[in-house]
Computed example of a mutant assay.
Amino acid sequence: MDTALGDPLMASNDTASAGRAPAIEARGLVKQFEGTTAVDGIDLTVPEGAIYGILGPNGAGKTTTLRMLLGIIDPDEGVRRVLGRDDPHDIARLIGYLPEERGLYPAMKAVEAIAFMGALRGVPLAEGRRRGRELLEGHGLGHAADKQIRQLSKGMAQTVQLLGTLVHRPRLVVLDEPFSGLDAINQGKLEGLIRNLAADGTTVIFSTHVIAHAERLCEQVAIIAGGKVPYAGSVDAARDRIPAQVRLETRAREGRWRDALPADARREGDYWYFPLPETGIEPLLRALIEGEAGILSLSIERAGLHDAFVDIAGEAAARALDEQSPAEAVQ
C-alpha cells in the first residue's frame, strides 16, 4: 500500500480504528478555475462498504470533488487516497463511475453499450455481452437488450449506462447525481440497486441535491456548500445536533400543569411544541398527569436531515437545495 499521505492521516481515521478500512481518504483538497475557488480545503473519509452521500446544492463543488477523487482532474492542493493507492489511475479497473453528463452512442444496442463500457475496464467483449444480458434481465430490461439506445426511454437509457458502470464488478462505485431525471419508479429501483451493491460489500459514493435520497440511503454524508464541507459524519449524528421536538395536545386549556412546560414552549392551534427536555419526557409526563392536563396525544419527533442541513449549512444553502429539488425525490 502507498504511504505518501503519512501516518497522521491514518491516525485520524476513526472508521479504520472501528474495523472498517477507508475506501477513500482526502485531506485539504483545493481546486480553482480561472481564479475562482470551486473546492476549498475539503476533508473526506469514506469507509469501505458504506453508502456515502455528498449532499449540497448545484454549484457547491460536488462534481469537482468527485473528479479530484477519481483522478479526472488533479487538486491544486491536498492529498487523496483511493482503495489504498495515491494515484486513482492505478486502480481504475476497480472503480465504476457514472458522470452527471449522461451519454451513450444512440445507434448502439443496449447490450453492446454495456459490453463496450466493460471493455474500457478490461472485460473481454464476449464476457461483457454475457454479463450485459444478465444485468439487463436482472433489472427487468431483458426485452431491450437488442434495441438501440435511441429506441429506449430516458429512464431505460440511464439504467443501461448505470449497468455499464457496474459490468466490470467494481469495488468502488461513484455516482454523480444518479437520480437526476429519473421518474419515481426508476428512482426507487436505483435506491434498491445501491442497497444491494452495499450489501455485497461494494462501496458506493454518490452526490445529490435531494436530501430524501441521502437520508434514506446513507450511513454517512458530507454536507458541502460554497466549496467547503462544514460537516462530514453519520446521518444520525447530524440529526442529533438538533434536539428532538415534543408535540403535545391536552384536553385542559389552562391549569397548574402549564408551569411544567419549558419556557420556550409555543402553541400552534391545538398543539404545544417544544424541545425535548434534557431530563427526558418522564418528569414532564408526571407533572402533566398530576396537574390534570388531560393528555390527548404526545409525540417526540426527531429532527430530519433537512433540519440538520439548515443548521449546518445555513438557510441560503438550504433554500438553494429546496429550489432545485422540489419534486425530484420519491416520498
Rank of each mutant, 00 (worst) to 15 (best):
Q158H: 13
T159Y: 12
V160F: 03
Q161H: 05
T165A: 08
V167L: 10
P170K: 05
R171M: 00
L172K: 08
V174D: 03
P178A: 10
F179Q: 06
S180K: 14
G181N: 05
G181D: 02
A184E: 10
A184R: 14
I185G: 08
G188E: 13
E191W: 11
E191P: 03
G192A: 12
L193F: 15
I194Y: 07
R195T: 02
L197Y: 01
V204N: 01
S207Q: 07
V210A: 15
I211C: 02
A212S: 15
H213T: 09
H213K: 10
R216S: 08
L217E: 02
G226K: 09
G226W: 10
V229S: 15
Y231S: 05
S234K: 10
V235E: 04
V235Q: 10
R239Y: 01
R241K: 13
A244P: 00
Q245Y: 05
V246R: 10
T250L: 03
T250R: 10
R253G: 05
G255I: 00
G255K: 04
G255L: 04
R256A: 08
D264A: 14
G269K: 09
Y271I: 00
F274A: 06
F274V: 01
F274Q: 06
F274E: 07
I281D: 02
E282T: 13
P283R: 13
L284I: 00
L285Y: 05
L285M: 12
R286E: 08
G291D: 04
S297A: 15
L298A: 12
L298R: 12
